[in-house]
Computed example of a mutant assay.
Amino acid sequence: MALPGLVTTCLSPPVHYAICKLGFENTDTYDINNILSGNGEVCWQAVTEHVCYLESDQSVDYIKSIRSLGPVCECVNLYFKSLTKEQFVIQYASWFHWTNCTEVFLEVFDVLQYAQATEVALGLMKLTSCLERALGDVYLLKGNDCPFLLRDLLASEQLADVFGQAVVST
């Protein structure tokens, strides 16, 4: 039985650190206008500038990248929390039609605004599932035998052809 106030986790200490602490270490602030365009689209150049690579083999340095991307994500989070549901629907609802799960994205917007951490985690899992299914459908437009794992799907040439390498790499 867990003691009150004592949070237990099944995550290993390094994974717990990467998920729960690492992105919050850097407290820089960013202007949302440098991350999102006037119509709400992500400026991928601004995001990819925060992805760091190892000098040895040019693979992603996940620790440095998470640390650098943390304030960018916080900026976007604060922006979305500043929107009303009506503003969010007007700005973004039409962008989710390709997923065939528009209502799930709108439902999770509410959860992200006001909910407890558990509800937020469950909402993000729902979104991930919807997004994975939609990306799998896009993959099948260009290829056969959709990868089983999301990471393999995101690393596929088929999705890079459709969305661009910068988008699927980030």
Rank of each mutant, 00 (worst) to 15 (best):
Met1Gly: 09
Leu141Arg: 12
Leu69Met: 10
Asp152Met: 14
Thr170Ile: 04
Asn144Ala: 12
His97Leu: 10
Asp137Met: 12
Ala160Trp: 04
Leu149Pro: 00
Ala166Asp: 13
Ser12Tyr: 06
Gly5Arg: 04
Arg133Ala: 15
Pro71Ala: 07
Ala18Val: 03
Ser65Asn: 01
Glu25Ser: 01
Glu25Ala: 04
Pro14Val: 00
Leu149His: 11
Phe109His: 03
Val76His: 01
Gly38Val: 07
Val120His: 01
Asn26Trp: 06
Leu83Phe: 05
Asn39Asp: 14
Tyr17Glu: 10
Ala166Asn: 13
Asp61Phe: 00
Ile35Gln: 07
Leu153Pro: 00
Lys64His: 04
Gly38Asn: 13
Cys20His: 14
Cys20Tyr: 12
Gly38Leu: 14
Cys75Ile: 05
Gln113Lys: 13
Arg133Glu: 12
Leu6Trp: 04
Ile32Gln: 04
Thr118His: 03
Thr9Glu: 08
Ile66Asp: 01
Tyr139Ser: 02
Cys43Arg: 15
Ala121Leu: 11
Thr27Gln: 06
Leu11Lys: 02
Ala134Asp: 02
Lys142Met: 14
Ser68Leu: 08
Leu141Val: 12
Tyr62Asp: 02
Val42Tyr: 00
Leu54Cys: 12
Gln87Ile: 10
Gln158Ser: 15
Leu122Trp: 04
Val47Phe: 11
Leu127Gly: 05
Ser56Gln: 15
Glu86Ile: 04
Glu86Ser: 15
Val89Ile: 15
Phe148Ser: 13
Leu11Val: 00
Gln165His: 10
Ala121Ser: 12
Leu69Ile: 05
Thr27Ser: 07
Gln58Asn: 12
Cys130Tyr: 00
Gly23Ala: 09
Cys146Asp: 03
Glu55Asp: 11
Phe80Lys: 10
Glu25Tyr: 01
His16Arg: 06
Asn34Gly: 03
Val162Leu: 01
Ser56Ile: 13
Leu150Gln: 02
Val104Asp: 14
Leu153Cys: 09
Arg133Ile: 09
Thr128Met: 14
Phe88Asp: 00
Leu149Cys: 06
Cys146Val: 12
Cys73Ala: 15
Tyr62Trp: 07
Ala93Leu: 08
Asp61Lys: 09
Val138Pro: 01
Val47Lys: 01
Ser56Lys: 15
Pro13Trp: 03
Thr48Trp: 05
Gly123Phe: 02
Trp95Gly: 07
Phe105Lys: 03
Val72Ser: 03
